[in-house]
């Protein structure tokens, strides 16, 4: 059962990524990316991380992709790549060959270590919201506070950029 779920979610996520890259229409790309992120939530659930699975769907498949689709809606015209130009075959070769080489290297490197099992079943309550938040607000409290500053800077930056030519309220 675990093997079936892994292959199902893994193939769905890889397919979603592949279609995101190959589809010409940005809206279709975005919808395939949502598929990939929902499949990633399934992978998190398999790795006994239920809290991460929920957050993956809420934050990635929900918030971030809604942001992408809104921007596609605002830009309307240029979401289709220019069809008159020939597709970028040269770059495809330059990108795909090193990528294939890197993938083969990584796979042989990982396999030379021997297949490592996931180890014994985890304890009750592993990866739940309670267990993760104990760490988040305990041992990693400084990182938690710093990441909130990153988000604050992101909000202010997006606001300042999105205002365009109009005057900002604090100027």
């Amino acid at each position: 059962m675990e093997a079936f779920l892994f292959w199902f979610c893994g193939i769905l996520m890889f397919l979603g990524g592949l279609m995101t890259v190959t589809q010409r229409n940005a809206v279709v790309s975005a919808v395939w990316l949502i598929f990939a992120f929902v499949a990633a939530a399934g992978i998190f659930a398999l790795l006994s991380a239920p809290f991460l699975a929920i957050m993956q769907i809420l934050v990635y498949a929900g918030a971030i992709m809604v942001l992408f689709l809104f921007v596609i809606m605002m830009l309307q015209g240029p979401v289709m790549e220019d069809e008159r130009r020939s597709p970028n075959k040269v770059w495809l070769v330059f990108a795909a060959l090193p990528a294939a080489a890197i993938l083969v290297t990584i796979i042989s490197w990982i396999r030379s270590d021997g297949a490592r099992s996931l180890g014994p079943a985890v304890a009750e309550g592993f990866g739940t919201a309670e267990a993760v938040s104990r760490l988040l607000l305990g041992r990693y409290l400084l990182a938690f506070e710093l990441i909130s500053i990153v988000l604050l800077v992101g909000i202010i930056g997006a606001l300042a950029l999105g205002k365009g030519e109009r005057k900002l309220p604090w100027k």
Partner: peptide
């Protein structure tokens, strides 16, 4: 995180969510 039985990795995934959103 699953292999080591330690949720520290989950915390870093949450940090990564915030970075991706920003």
């Amino acid at each position: 995180s699953r292999v080591h039985g330690n949720e520290g990795g989950h915390v870093f995934v949450l940090m990564n969510f915030a970075v991706a959103a920003a």
